[in-house]
């Protein structure tokens, strides 16, 4: 269980995280939504251990988070593959580094499983620049799962992709999370309202200063598996959608 208690973080005198209280249970899929600069990426990075918080408590299963660890893997917005390594080497080197206790046969098995799962095994020897953005991000997803993290952190993972590719990757992500992996909990930062509702169990809505960071937490009561085509007609979907719209419109920065 992931716990944040009164977490504060500022950059250049700007309070980006303002007293964040949040508990995420095992097996939950939580989306974070809000305007640019609301601190949602900062929150994800703090959970990932990439940056220290100024004040408050941040813990996973009772242990304070101070640095990155193999129990948490991240997928970044801009793919962030190492450009001179093949797709296979990108996944394998990360899996090897994060899970040194595995034998190389185990590592190879895991790497092959997830590259297959995202449909890239045939392209494994290509470099990132030789494949499309969608394929790069699928590699990044495979890389994250290959570490077998308990907690998966996604920072606007599909933001740079076209709508069709995004839809396919969302489906792949949910399938991997539910059926193919030991990963239990997912935190995802997103700009997309529909994406947030389609994937998440709960949606954390974040706002701009000077108010509190979290302005609302909306549960999504839709049974899984969710079918992309029919789910948008469900009343529950509509309700969440309208509430999100209202919150985000009210929060819209005046200058924009």
């Amino acid at each position: 269980m992931l716990e944040l208690k009164n977490v504060w973080k500022s950059f250049n005198g700007q309070d980006v995280l303002r007293g964040v209280d949040l508990a995420v249970g095992q097996g939950e899929f939580v989306s974070f939504i809000g305007h640019s600069g609301c601190g949602k990426s900062t929150l994800i990075n703090a959970v990932g251990g990439l940056m220290a918080i100024d004040a408050g408590e941040l813990s996973l299963d009772g242990k304070a988070i101070t640095e990155p660890g193999p129990d948490r893997a991240m997928v970044f917005q801009n793919y962030s593959l190492l450009p001179r390594l093949s797709l296979l080497a990108n996944v394998r080197e990360a899996a090897k580094a994060a899970r040194p206790e595995r034998t190389s046969a185990q590592t190879d098995e895991v790497v092959e499983r997830y590259l297959n799962a995202v449909g890239l095994w045939e392209h494994r020897n290509k470099r990132p620049a030789q494949v499309s953005g969608g394929m790069q991000q699928r590699t990044a997803v495979a890389r994250a799962f290959a570490v077998s993290p308990r907690l998966l952190l996604l920072d606007e993972p599909f933001g740079a992709l076209d709508a069709l590719t995004r839809a396919r990757l969302q489906q792949q992500l949910v399938d991997l999370w539910q059926h193919e992996s030991t990963t239990e909990t997912v935190l995802m930062v997103t700009h997309g309202i529909d994406e947030a509702i389609l994937l998440a169990d709960r949606i954390v809505v974040m706002g701009n200063p000077p108010g509190p960071s979290i302005i609302d937490i909306i549960p999504v009561d839709l049974p899984r598996p969710r079918d992309r085509a029919s789910v948008i007609d469900e009343p529950a979907f509509r309700m969440v959608q309208e509430r999100l719209m209202a919150l985000l419109t009210a929060e819209e920065p005046a200058a924009a």
Binding site: G49, P68, P70, A73, E93, A94, A97
Partner: peptide, 8 residues
């Protein structure tokens, strides 16, 4: 960040 997250 990739190197840090994956404990290189």
């Amino acid at each position: 960040n990739v190197a840090r997250v994956f404990k290189f």
